[in-house]
Design a protein around this nucleic acid. Sequence first.
DNA 1: ATGTTCCTTCTTTTT
DNA 2: GAAGGAACAT
Length: 705
Amino acid sequence: MAQTRDFLLKQLNERQKAAVSAPLGNALVVAGAGTGKTRVLVSRVLWLMLVENIEPRRILAVTFTNKAAGELKERLAALVDARSAAAIWSGTFHSICLRLLRSYANQIGLKHDFTVMGRDDQHSLVKRLTKEHGINLKDRRLTEKEVVEKISRFKGKGQRAAEICRQIHSDQKEETVATLYAAYEEECVRQDLLDYDELILKTVEMLRDHPELRELQHSRFAEILVDEFQDTSTLQYELLKLLRGPDSHLFAVGDDDQSIFSWRGAAVGNMQSFAEDLPGVERYQLSDNYRSMQNILDMANVLIEQNHERIMRKVLTTSRGQGEKVQICKFQNVSSQARFVQGEISRLCRDEGCKPHEIAVLYRNANVSLECEKALAAAGLNYQVFGGQKFFDRAEIQDAIAYLRILVNERDDSALMRIINVPSRKLGDKSVETLRLCARERSLSMLQCLGVLMQGAAERDAGAEVKRLAHKFDSFYGVYLKLRSLRDRACSLTSLVRDVLEQSGLIEHYKQLDDKNDAYKTGNIRHVNLQELVNHAERFEQENSELQAAVSLSDTAVDGAKPGSNDMLTAFLSGMTLRSSLELNQEGQVLTAEDFVNLMTIHSAKGLEFKAVFVVSFNDSILPSMYATQKLNFNLSALDEERRLAYVAITRAQDRLYLCYSERMPIYGQWQDASPSAFLREMIDPYRRKPDKDRPFVIRLPDYE
DNA sequence: ATGTTCCTTCTTTTT
DNA sequence: GAAGGAACAT
């Protein structure tokens, strides 16, 4: 025991040791960027298992992405046996809630084959409801997106539509949102659809209202660890408190300076509440940085110092040395910026022994990546893009998913409406609307109603009206029946997905579109993307059969879930909706170990590190965003968050950091003058009077222009 | 029902 | 400068 103990602590510094070997109890670890947060987390899990003798299946680790959960397990598997590593409950809030909800669905009046809906579905649902209620959003100065966001905010605070409706006071805008929220909620229940926030909210309500289920979790989870605690929402925090029993503990790791998701409901205040809400919270703070050279940290420290709402001030230091100076580079336009980035990357790889995958180009908005992509492609450098539009968000993939969804959940009207006329079956809004109303009258789903209709039309005494309507849907219903029998006969997920794509006519449909739009030139060939989906299914199936074997051995206590072939499809569908943008690049391929330069948004670079980092388009109205600058009069917190975002970008760099901005950029398709980010000035100003050699940066005018 | 053309309106960031 | 909507033609 003393040996394992020493082994675990050997490679840690004093502060890390203290956190890892903390006595069982509630703990808050404030860990600055690059201070070995992941190492502490992994070591703590090992500590719990090996020193405190806690069964792996009684440990719950909540991570920010599924990828992080995977890495955690991977690192553990290398140090303990694979079975133990697999037994640990780890995943995002969403995936953990999904797992709990599927287990207890029938006990809380939820169909066990409910569908998880993504952003796309939320939008089209709101759009449809708006029309149905005869609401003109423009009149009320609202957008669809705003409505979706507001609903999400309400749910993120645990507020149901009924509560919101009660609260409104004659504000037209609020009233509209409340009406739509109520309709949205109703429709989701009808169709057994759960959006992202609903996964959390339902779980919270479940644990709150069902003491027996809550106590079951209390006895199951002895230790709960949370990564990126600063980015938890009030509701997620609520969930953690419900999951924690009187004898179990919460070990939260976070950094208030890296909170960059408040727009999606994250409440940094949770870090402060933590010590007040839970008994006997011990605090640990890490500020010894192992990632970056001191020059990089100096820039980061100076920048974050400007924030108004810091909770736990820390100054990052390293013993790695000063390192290269940070380069601040000015360009005439975005294409010369891109050419510089490309040229410098080539140079780093050629002369400095850098590997492409150790280099990242980071930006505030996904659309900025385009110029860089072009330049890298022209130079023949391999790169992969993360963030921005995800593979699974593409129209063709969503169509495919919709076909699969109606096979899992026949009440899923949203999915049905998406594909009932794709490929074209001569069904327009009118026929579909007739069907929808007909279904509503009989309180059936559209698909169920269609079944009844077809049966009715086949009878001898069927009316002409019924026959005519049924005839319109003949073609679709035939396809549906065929797909359904495929589902029942399918021997594997992969073959089912392949057959559904083929038999639905989707592949053929997109092949024709690709031909027509000369898609082969742009490289975005949609029927090929559909093929890629089949590959996904195959990988998913492989991974899951391994996983199932491992879990069924070690996690016998999980609550009577009966795996079947349909469950595989259900899991595949939810998995795709909950997949993080980091796990797949934009082509839908899994992260490769091959040598690709990484292009990503700063948000998706969270938690990662690279030898060399280029922050591009570090301009005013980009970073900080125009949105945040405009809000400046009302609150400084929007600007603070932008500053944290810049801070996160800077602290990704280990050895080299380039901060690039352009003097002209295209806005609304027109070239306009652009100024450097105010944050650049904030970092430069404190060094105004210092001689060059004492500055952590150089201002450079690359000779590319 | 579907395809065309011309119009407006936007732009964060993601599980 | 793209994407989605309205208006019109087929």
